[in-house]
Write a protein that binds this DNA or RNA. Sequence first.
DNA 1: CCATGCGCTGAC
DNA 2: GTCAGCGCATGG
Length: 383
Amino acid sequence: MPTKYELERSRRIEQNKALLAKLGVEQYKPPKSAAAVAAANKATAGANGKPKAAAGRKRKAQVKPEDDYSDASGDEEEEDEDDDDDDVDDGKVRKPKRKKQKPAVDVPAGVRRSSRNAGRTVDYNKERRGGQPKPVVPIERYAGDAEEGGRGGRKADRSALGKRYGSVPGVEVGSWWKMRMDCRLAGIHLPLVAGISGCADGAYSVALSGGYEDDVDLGDGFVFTGSGGRDLKGTKDKPKNLRTAPQSSDQSFENHFNRALKKSVETRKPVRVVRGYKLGSPYAPVEGYRYDGLYTVEKAWMEKGMNKEGYLVCKFAFKVHADNMPSAHSLADMVLQRLPGQPPLPYRDRDAEKAEAEPTEEKDENATDEEESANEEDASDDA
DNA sequence: CCATGCGCTGAC
DNA sequence: GTCAGCGCATGG
């Protein structure tokens, strides 16, 4: 029998779903299982000759710079940012003016930051089985990793591109990164911990990483909880320095980030959305952080949060942006055309995943060229 | 300067 | 698997 808490949670979820429905957001759910979609993609690849795989780091920018959402607010020019002069020239990006920007690559001696140590080896085959897009941003070592002789692996820093509204030139919807720092360097979502990025004029991006039980994710729209109201300091006698903590007071729109999101409701400017692996939703990536394109913030309000004391939280309803709506295309488009830069929103059918866990045969995905595809390791399965 | 933040890591 | 606690970037 469900506990009282669970009942309340369900009630809120239904409530939020109803709200999203009123905003025109329908649950996005591909009629086929992820495996079927993957298979269809394979077929498509055969038909088209070759799957359009991102060619590693050198791939050309396929997303039109700016104006991807020109209709959004009528005001075309994105002002600020001397824009084009520091245009992304694919491989090389001019150093940001603020040279202090060095990517946090300095790893204290003795501390190794290899994926091996992280205990989370990336299993690309698994990613594909789950219908996940291949990483268009290669997973690289942090410069400073002793084994590679230091700065050899330094990544381009495009974070300067993040303080703008809309898409980031050269970053396709569906791109994903293993860590927040990489997401930052790509210019998609700058904060390394915070879930909201923005300024007084509106929000640039948000990261969905779970953390709020009553958040709802329907794919083409979702309800997002604001930030603040947490006691990050611990107690007096036991001072902490936490990045996250339970709700301990009301949130409010005084909060800088909540305010930014509220402002976005007025401006209608698109907000970049990143889904993290910790998000408990069918649309959450298996691993890392995935850029899911542009959404608009349709509504902002306050309500009691799912915390014992009933502290107020700020809530926001997001709806996928028309120009970037992955599921706006018919399934046929989705699996037969794989529109460049607008892949379908990945959907995890956990039941199918489980069924597929039985390794009947190596479902050799579309053999997308790519260097790291040489991952002969078989799925050791998750934890 | 101070305060904040839906990460990340090594240690169990 | 869980847990504690830190750098860093950002904004005021």
